[in-house]
Design a protein around this nucleic acid. Structure first.
Lengths: 138, 138
DNA sequence: CTGGATCCCCCCTGATACTG
DNA sequence: CAGTATCAGGGGGGATCCAG
């Protein structure tokens, strides 16, 4: 199945564009968490997402809102309250995101082990022989 | 369903770690294309991925190989030939990636429209009134 | 053809301080 | 609480040259 036909090329460009937003780890985490929790306030999100800065959360939420994936509701109270949740389109994205989420927790350990194996082997190769790399690895 | 329990926190960390590699747009594109095409050579991949540089393709493939998601096979020929394909674990990732891929092509247009609407509305708000932002948007 | 090595710039990101 | 404004630093990523 060649990728060079029109539909696949279009997919490629769509992916490239969408991934510039969605491929960002913070966006994935926000969508994933909102998908699981429903509606959250700014600082609730901030506390749930490991290591995100206030600035990045603000930017991420703005971009998601701009792309029509997240709704932002301001309650004119004091102290201020702003709630975020997924739009209808955002909810459709939560499916693929959840798949990715599940895959991550299922294979995280395997990836860590693969890295360890790779690093060990590369280290051994480098120490043993730096010239004869001309054979298949794996 | 609170996110604060142990399993969800673990998922959060797994996501964070995995997304540092997988969330990268180039990795997603490489896995997606390899999943669709099976086995490809370096320059075949480079031609198929819109806008990737040689350096980034090399680094991306190395990282994917290190994480046990891609196999790299060197044929000691002249000119050199190197073929890449997904490992068993890589193939399991292709499922979620394909979902994301399909979602992208399905919703790309909607996202573009949402951006246009957002930008128009923001522009109008900024021009009309910069003080009274204290109402719900969306 | 498949990369390794190098230079270098831009922007992403975090930290901090301030406002409503 | 929910941001905005500003500054500074690091690294992601492109361009280029060279090697096997």
């Amino acid at each position: 199945m060649p990728i060079t036909d029109t539909s696949k090329s279009a997919n490629c460009l769509a992916m490239s564009d969408v991934l510039n937003r969605i491929g960002d780890k913070w966006s994935v985490m926000v969508v994933g968490i909102l998908g699981k929790s429903g509606t959250l306030r700014f600082n609730e999100l901030k506390r749930m997402i490991n290591g995100i800065s206030q600035r990045m959360l603000t930017l991420t939420l703005r971009n998601l809102e701009r792309d029509g994936l997240v709704t932002r509701t301001i309650y004119p109270e004091v102290p201020p309250r702003v709630e975020y949740s997924l739009t209808k389109m955002g909810k459709t994205l939560d499916g693929p995101i959840s798949s990715l989420w599940d895959w991550s927790s299922d294979h995280h350990q395997a990836i860590l082990e693969a890295r360890a194996v790779y690093d060990t082997r590369e280290g051994a190769i480098a120490k043993e022989n730096t010239r004869k790399i001309a054979y298949a690895r794996g």
